[in-house]
Design a protein around this nucleic acid. Structure first.
Length: 549
RNA sequence: GCGCCCGUAGCUCAGCCGGAUAGAGCAACGGACUUCUAAUCCGUAGGUCGCAGGUUCGAAUCCUGCCGGGCGUACCA
């Protein structure tokens, strides 16, 4: 509409600019400034050499709005053009919610493109802790948001089941096992995993049966490592599944060495063919500094063993060869220095590094009774995800993890998350949903049949807060789109809290039932829309939307 | 030293691909339940958006430099 007005204003000689400016429509901070506003006049000011207010007038003069759409278009002081929508137009737009309730909020910004989404990928050397939980919630919800934006999402967990940490796990398990059968005199390796979970593992019947009567030290070691890893991985899968996080694929690092040839060697050979690998001090180095990394990196050690980076190069190389349109990884913030070298290696292999996005998720600290909960990974005493989930519930845990943007450190208040009161935002949103549902139940009990709710009839919903509510509802698809475009699921959480707040206020101020057929019906329609959007939003978060509380 | 993230109300945080009077929750204070769920609502109070420059008609938002906090800086993963 603005573009058309600009064109016709130019055709009429009112404007002289050649270039069509980028039209930015935004929602004003204050209701008094209308429903939408545009700054086009201000951006044109320079090129036109005229005051923004003058330009705005010329543009508004050439507006051709569809019938029944605009109530008013006003020009405000610095040069904003503010549009005031017709209330009945809003009512009619709500019809979209009813025509396909489950789909409302979806958008097509992904245009059917495929996304490879890798997240969690915690080492199978210990249980998941709250930090992993945050990554899990973020990745899972991002996946849902991307799907709602018409991306095809493949969720993958990369299992680091090769390398030193598995050897360390094997040694730790072996030592605990021997301590268990021979007494505490058996030394525990200094770099071993201290966690209590390893003692439990070696006591389990699965472990004992797997070990059997092995005496040979090497055989015992490798067998202990395999079993411990398997048991831990099962535990991880269980924790994630209970946390309502699912994966399409569990990709094993060790499979890179064994399946369909050695993918690590292939990747190294491919890099060598590009001339980007060189030898120094007996090791093979990646010339990544020429690709934005701060220094070159070792890919093959001087003893011939590949580094972790070699695995990751092979893994990402394989990802790219699988032909996705985009790749998104979610990593802990402590891995941020790792991205340049992975990007560099992909560039060297002829892949487009820009197809790879990495979300870095900052740390989680726990708070209980107003005090920080001490977490010491060195001593193996960290707060496990499953313990937190058991304590506060899946809904609260997921919601809390998504109440902050990923790049800010999260303080997780256990007391608050557990609290079933107004102070807990999860319940706040769920309660709004349950409240709406109870209205429909109540209406039915009173014998009024409102199960054919559709868009509100025109001319009835005239309150300012009703307009505001309608506008917020209609903006929901934009919230989802923004969350997908910026890879920021927390917009969903904030959008839901805002909508719930608006609905609670509206509910308290205005009676919905028993207002006469016309008004009650219209307000119920509105409440139905609220309920649908809340439900869809909670679904995106993987949080339940109870009908009763 | 270098790199990434953060610094906004007493606390926890939104807002940050430039826009109008900087928002929310908690905490504080004062109100609202014979009426649709008080797990709710209404009101009051609370701010030199870390500091200093720059770009701009306009900066919490972009750039530069400082200060403060977190994380990283391996032939570990």
């Amino acid at each position: 509409m603005f573009e058309n007005a600009f064109e016709s204003a130019r055709a009429a000689g009112d404007l002289t600019s050649e270039d069509k400016p980028a039209v930015v429509i935004e929602t004003p901070p204050n209701e008094a400034f209308g429903d939408f506003s545009c700054n086009i006049a201000m951006t044109l000011a320079r090129a036109e050499r005229k005051a923004p207010l003058v330009i705005a007038e010329k543009i508004v003069k050439h507006f051709e709005a569809p019938e029944g759409f605009l109530r008013d278009a006003r020009i405000e002081k610095p040069g904003f053009i503010n549009l005031y929508l017709d209330g009945d137009f809003l009512c009619a737009k709500l019809g979209e919610i009813f025509s396909s309730p489950d789909d409302f909020g979806k958008n097509e910004s992904g245009a059917g493109k495929s996304v490879h989404l890798e997240f969690v990928s915690a080492n199978p050397t210990g249980p998941l802790h709250v930090g992993h939980g945050r990554g899990a919630a973020l990745g899972d919800v991002l996946g849902r948001v991307l799907e709602a934006s018409d991306f095809r999402v493949h969720r993958e967990y990369y299992i680091n089941d090769a390398g030193n940490q598995i050897e360390t796990l094997a040694k730790s398990a072996c030592a605990r096992y021997l301590q268990d059968v021979k007494g505490d005199a058996v030394p525990f390796p200094g770099d071993g995993y201290q966690g209590e979970y390893i003692r439990e593992i070696v006591k389990s019947s699965r472990f004992r049966e797997g070990i059997g009567a092995l005496e040979d030290e090497q055989a015992l070691l490798s067998q202990a490592g395999v079993i411990a890893k398997d048991l831990i991985l099962e535990d991880i899968k269980k924790s994630l599944s209970e946390f309502r996080v699912r994966f399409d694929e569990w990709f094993s690092e060790s499979s890179l060495f064994t399946e369909n040839g050695n993918k690590i060697e292939e990747a190294i050979a491919a890099l060598e063919a590009t001339g980007k690998l060189y030898e120094k001090d007996g090791a093979k180095w990646l010339a990544s500094s020429a690709y934005g990394d701060e220094k070159d990196r070792v890919v093959v050690r001087d003893d011939g063993r590949p580094t972790y980076l070699a695995s990751d190069i092979a893994y990402h190389h394989l990802k790219y060869e699988r032909g996705f349109d985009r790749y998104i990884n979610i990593w802990g913030a402590d891995h941020h220095g790792y991205l340049p070298r992975v990007r560099a290696s992909m560039g060297m292999l002829g892949h487009d590094p820009d197809k790879l996005d990495v979300l870095f998720v900052q740390f989680v600290s726990l708070r209980r009774g107003g005090e920080a909960v001490q977490m010491s990974t060195r001593a193996g005493e960290f707060e496990e995800l499953s313990a937190v989930v058991d304590e506060v519930g899946v809904d609260a845990a997921r919601f809390f993890f998504l109440m902050r943007s990923a790049d800010t450190a999260l303080e997780f208040d256990l007391d608050l998350a557990k609290e079933q009161s107004s102070e807990n935002p999860v319940y706040y949103v769920q309660y709004a949903h349950a409240r709406a549902c109870s209205l429909f139940r109540q209406a039915a009990e009173e014998g009024e049949s409102f199960d054919d709710l559709d868009e509100p009839p025109p001319g009835v919903l005239v309150l300012a807060e009703e307009r505001q509510l309608m506008k917020n509802l209609l903006e929901w698809p934009d919230v989802v789109r923004t969350a997908a475009e910026r890879l920021e699921p927390h917009h969903i959480t904030f959008g839901l809290i805002a909508l719930a707040k608006q609905f609670h206020a509206y509910y308290n101020r205005n009676r919905i039932l028993g207002q006469g057929d016309g008004l009650t019906r219209a307000r119920l329609c509105l409440a139905k829309c609220v309920q649908i959007v809340l439900k869809n939003g909670l679904n995106l978060l993987g949080v339940s939307a109870p009908e009763k509380m």
